[in-house]
Amino acid sequence: MSQRKRSKGLSSSQMTDGEEDCSPSQRDQPFQDQMNQKVSELVQFLLVKDQKKIPIRRADMLKTVGQKYKNYTEIVNRAGKTLQEVFGLQLMEIDTKLHTYILIDNLPRAEGEYLCKDKEKEKMGLLLVVLSFIFMKGNSVKDTALWEFLRLLRVHPGKPHKVFGDVRKLLMDEFARQKYLDVTPIPLTDPPEFKFQWGPRAEKETSKKDVLKFVAKIQGKDPTFWVSQNKEAEAEAAS
């Protein structure tokens, strides 16, 4: 990295030798350009990584920016702003311990749009149905209960499905890795049983209120028909 020239007329008492984070207006142009380039690279990186919808690790983001780069936080912030400004997407941290991030759509929802390829659309349909079942049943269900429910929809965990193929793999592997679902084994069960809950991506991409709306629409009822679920949904929306 080239030597940073200090611009004249600095009034800030915080500026001392070796200070890393100077304010942008006090940096020279080559540095600005390099920063801009890093931000653009990170934005490209995030877009590419989001293709498979697997949460992005901060460590990987750091590698792209260049590990020696001290202004990492600023670059990430600016990348987030660019994603919002240009694409209407939001960069969100879904795990504060593991520091993993996802992109979600921040534009106000509208009807009649085609934002997905057909194959993806079908998977999202199944996902929302599963999320609905989990929520309406108290936020946690056993795998046996879920399979029993899905059978009613002609979806069987053991049989390859015409649309979804290996459904067990889709739910317990793909959706789990994408953090749409949280699949945890129940201890001391043999053969092993699992419980299904919403994953952190589901929590960010949708809400209890929205899911209840979906159920209500399908069943032709008002969301308030399910009193306690509705209460829970309202409580979540308020927080």
Binding site: E85, V86, F87, G88, D105, L107, P108, E113, Y114, L115
Partner: peptide
């Protein structure tokens, strides 16, 4: 300036390919 209209347009075009 970009508006939400621009962003929405871009999102749909991106999805369609």
């Amino acid at each position: 300036q970009m508006t939400n209209a621009h962003r929405r347009f871009l999102q749909v075009l991106m999805s369609n390919g």
